[in-house]
Amino acid sequence: MKFGTDKNETNKRNTLIEKAIRKYADTIYRIAYQYTGNFSDAQDIFQEVALTLVTANPPFEDEHYLRNWICRVTINKCKNLKKYRLLHIFEPLDENVAANVRESDCLSDELLKLPKKYRTVLYLFYFEEFSIEEISNILGINPNTVGSQLRRGRERLRKIIEEGEDNCV
C-alpha cells in the first residue's frame, strides 16, 4: 500500500504505523534482547526499527510479509550494532542501568552459553515458530545453512544441558 501526501493519508499511515509498532513491539524487543544480551541495546534497536517503519514504508496490508520484514530489519539492526561495537569502544554502563540488565534474569543458563548465531536461529524456530524458509529470508542465508545451524545449535544445546546435569551430580 503506497501512500499519497495529503493530511488524510498521513493520518491513515500514522494509524497503520502505530498499530504495527504496538503489535510487534515485544517481538522486536525479544529478538534484539536475545541477540544483544542487554535491555538497553534492545530498547535502542526497538526504536530504530519503529522509525524504519516510517522511512521504508513496507506493505502494511500483508501481515505475513510485514512480520518477516520486521524480524529481518531487527536482525540487521542488531548486526549493525555489532559492527559498531567492533569499531567503537563504548562507555561502561551506568551502575543503575547495569543493575537492570542482567541477562541471566531472563535467559536460562543453557541459552547463555549458546553462541548468538545458534541462539538466534533456535529462537526464531522455536519461539517465533518461523519455518526454515522464513528464517532463511529473515537472516539472508541459505535454507540449508539454516538447517545446519539449527542442527548444530540443538546439538550444542544438548551438550550444554548434559554437561549441566553431570555437574549437578
Binding site: E18, R22, Q47, C106, L157
Partner: peptide, 23 residues
C-alpha cells in the same frame, strides 16, 4: 528453554514514546 523470554515485554512508556516519535 525459550519460554522465559515470554516474560520480556517492552516498557509501555517506551512504546508510547516511540509511537510519538514515529508519528
Amino acid at each position: 528453554y525459550f519460554e522465559k523470554l515470554s516474560d520480556i515485554k517492552v516498557p509501555e512508556k517506551l512504546v508510547e514514546e516511540t509511537v510519538m516519535m514515529a508519528r
